[in-house]
Design a protein around this nucleic acid. Structure first.
Length: 595
RNA sequence: GGUCUCGUAGCUCAGCUGGAUAGAGCAACUGCCUUCUAAGCAGUAGGUCACUGGUUCGAAUCCAGUCGGGAUCACCA
């Protein structure tokens, strides 16, 4: 049964009976802790209609509901707030329905499809803290939609083309001495990243030298030999020069292997990868078609532009005067290709930092101008930067927090604390390892996901590694605790029959609160999906775990002498564990049986 | 400068489709392990919700302005 809906229906009945009127929007909200009840009807807006003052209105509605609804056992009115107490038998029914609902955590398929893009790193630098936020967000949003019954396609675009790749290639040719991941023992992405940094270093030196000879900065940047080397490589690559393409393939291969290892540890995956090198030509084609169709226009120098001034934006270049494509061209091609590959998807979510908001605004407008209906269903899941106490991460200043290093550090910290708490005594080394992995990554993921994605957030390497309080491990711990109870219950052969549960009465207030919260889970799922915000889920899971811990501490389950109550509390604990596990799964976090 | 965005406890964050005395965690201080796991629980202390004005029964929440932070405004991606 849907308690919320039933209650609203009953209130509407009350209004039509008492005042012969109906109201479109009822303000029903959770009751504040200091008052008795679980649901509160705000009566101020109803006063005009009832012509009776909020307090009197609340009282009349309360009396009606108590007498006629079968839901409300008690009520009180404070100022204009009608606080309703739902009767225990109703709670028992609500709980039993959830307990017996096998698709509570995973709703049945709704036949709808969507696509989520995330990660999409440059292939010349290793993944860092910002990518972690990106990946965890994108993965989680995909999981949230899946739980609602959607089929979700997780994809990423690989920017494997362009001058930036050629920079690493140029530097490797100059200084690499044939180094490979195998020969150095470095992860492939780290090795290529090293040469990208190397490039930058020599580039700067050469610019300085040329500037000292009297060249302007722009001239120096163009004429620096190492940059000319990179440009030469780009031209050769575009001309399909065999040796260049071989090197490009080899170095990209190293990077992908390195990224794969990182993704694996992060626990994220992709159904399909799109390569810029495969989509930019389609984009170009579309742009040229757009010129013919009059959507875009060509300047005298041959460059192609779109004029968005009538939409409040600027003009934007889509093809350079030499006919080569830009970032936007590639994204147009990719979007179209994806809808060709997956014609049933109704929308595409792009998980990309908020510094690209303008880009996506333009992209979606262009797609609309090209008359692609799916443009309406594209959404830029824009997230804020992760700042360090020293400010923004800057690769040039060496303040980048490397993703691999950070994950390793978190896992080591988890292991250290597990040891300090004396929990490893009866664990095998393999157990300790897998638990540390779970806890360390759980802490990291939760930390990055509990903040509203849109907001920029602070990461302090010295303080963020916390395993107590408002953290992932707190929830994991709560789950493990419940599992201990369930093990004990099964060891003493407590069998639960759903029919027993309906007859339970005299619930503790904390038990009602928790059922209320569990009952709210699907609302939160919807909200998280609507807002594209895993933070909604993480905060929900935290609140639920917190409430359960209160219950756990206050009520020793196995001291209960009434067998019906004992059964109820075990079933109740099981449901909490399942919902915790399910909601953590949406965040990409596993929960342990013991910790 | 234009556009967008953020400003809540010492710190990190919730709350924002207007509702009751603004909530957590961390840090500080006090208690609680012979009972299901103390990575926990209970409590104390900590606030001019940046500022000013407006809208109304009611504003942290909506609107306008001011101040402060950030992003963006490339034939880079």
């Amino acid at each position: 049964m849907n308690l919320d809906l039933s209650l609203r229906t009953e209130i509407q009945k009350a209004l039509s009976t008492l005042f012969n009127q109906s109201v479109e929007q009822l303000q029903l909200q959770p009751t504040n802790d200091e008052f008795e009840g679980s649901h509160t009807l705000v009566c101020f807006p109803l006063a005009k209609m009832s012509k009776k003052g909020p307090e009197e209105t609340g009282k009349l509605i309360g009396e009606y509901l108590q007498a006629n609804s079968g839901l409300v056992s008690k009520f009180n009115v404070v100022k204009g707030f009608l606080n309703l107490t739902i009767s225990d038998s109703v709670w028992a029914n609500v709980f039993t329905a959830i307990y017996t609902d096998e698709s509570f955590n995973q709703l049945p398929s709704n036949g709808r499809e969507m696509m989520v893009e995330y990660s999409s790193p440059n292939t010349n630098k290793p993944l860092h803290l910002g990518h972690l936020r990106n990946n965890f967000l994108g993965y989680s949003v995909a999981e949230i939609y899946k739980a609602l019954g959607y089929t979700v396609h997780k994809v990423q675009i690989i920017n494997d083309r362009g001058i930036h790749i050629c920079k690493s290639m140029a530097a490797w040719q100059l200084f690499g001495n044939g180094e490979t991941p195998q020969s150095t023992g470095l992860k492939g992405d780290k090795l290529v990243g090293k040469y990208y940094v190397e490039f930058d270093k020599y580039f700067k030196v050469q610019i300085a030298e040329l500037e000292a000879k009297g060249l302007t900065k722009e001239e120096a940047e163009k004429q620096a030999p190492i940059m000319q080397g990179a440009v030469a490589l780009l031209l050769k690559w575009e001309a399909n020069d065999q040796a260049t393409v071989e090197l490009w393939k080899a170095m990209n291969g190293w990077v992908y292997a390195g990224f794969d290892a990182t993704y694996k540890r992060m626990g994220v995956d992709f159904e399909k990868l799109y390569y810029e090198s495969n989509t930019y030509l389609l984009g170009k084609e579309e742009v040229l078609k757009g010129v013919e169709g009059g959507v875009f226009y060509k300047k005298e120098d041959g460059s192609v532009w779109v004029d968005l001034t009538s939409d409040g934006l600027d003009q934007k270049v889509l093809l350079r005067s030499d006919g080569t494509s830009v970032y936007m061209t590639q994204d147009i091609g990719t979007a179209i290709l994806r809808f060709r590959d997956f014609p049933k998807i109704e929308g595409q979510v792009y998980t990309v930092g908020n510094e690209q908001e303008y880009h996506f605004k333009v992209l979606f407008l262009i797609l609309k101008k090209l008359r692609y209906a799916f443009a309406e269903k594209c959404y830029h899941l824009s997230y804020g930067m992760v700042d360090l106490p020293s400010g923004k991460m800057k690769s040039r200043e060496g303040t980048v927090v490397d993703a691999d290093d950070l994950m390793e550090e978190m896992v080591l910290e988890a292991e250290k604390q597990t040891r300090e708490l004396g929990k490893i005594d009866e664990m095998t080394d393999a157990d300790v390892k897998s638990l540390s992995e779970m806890v360390g990554l759980g802490a990291l993921k939760f930390f990055l996901l509990k903040v509203d994605p849109k907001k920029r957030m602070m990461f302090d390497p010295n303080e963020s590694i916390q395993l107590q309080g408002h953290t992932g491990p707190f929830i994991q711990y709560t789950h493990a605790r419940i599992k201990a109870i369930l093990r004990k219950a099964s060891s003493i052969n407590v069998n639960i029959d759903a029919a027993d549960l309906k007859n339970i009465s005299l619930l503790e207030p904390i038990e009602r609160e928790i059922i209320f919260r569990i009952n709210d889970y699907h609302n939160k799922l919807q909200e998280a999906a609507r807002e594209y915000s895993p933070a909604v889920i993480s905060n929900y899971a935290y609140e639920l775990a917190k409430e359960y811990n209160q219950f756990y501490q206050a009520i020793p389950i196995f001291n209960e002498s009434d067998p019906a109550k004992l059964k109820f509390r075990i079933a109740f604990s099981k449901v909490v564990a399942d919902v915790l596990k399910g909601s953590m799964k949406l965040l990409g976090i596993s929960v342990p049986e013991k910790m």
